[in-house]
Amino acid sequence: MAIEVRIPTILRSYTDGAKAVDAKGATLEELIGDLDARHPGLKARLVDDAGLRRFVNVYLNDEDVRFLGGLGTPVADGDTVTVLPAVAGGAR
């Protein structure tokens, strides 16, 4: 078993159009590393030097990982990780 990662429309160019792909790892950081090995370029769209990019939301099952342990959040087989573009903006 692996961990299912759900990919938003905007990033499907990295996954040959796939809505969901499998990856492995013990933490979110390892998972994203494995994801990038399978789909090069994806990592840079999710993280920068400071950690998770503020333009994306990453969820472990039903919870935003920002409320868990961020990139250090443990993940396990059978989990689902969902990536969504953050929707934000405003007058300033």
């Binding site: 969820y59 039903d62 920002r66 929707v87 934000a88 300033r92």
Partner: peptide, 14 residues
Amino acid sequence: RSPTFYRFDSREQL
């Protein structure tokens, strides 16, 4: 909840 910024609540968005 700001007059100059908005962001969807991430859980509600999911």
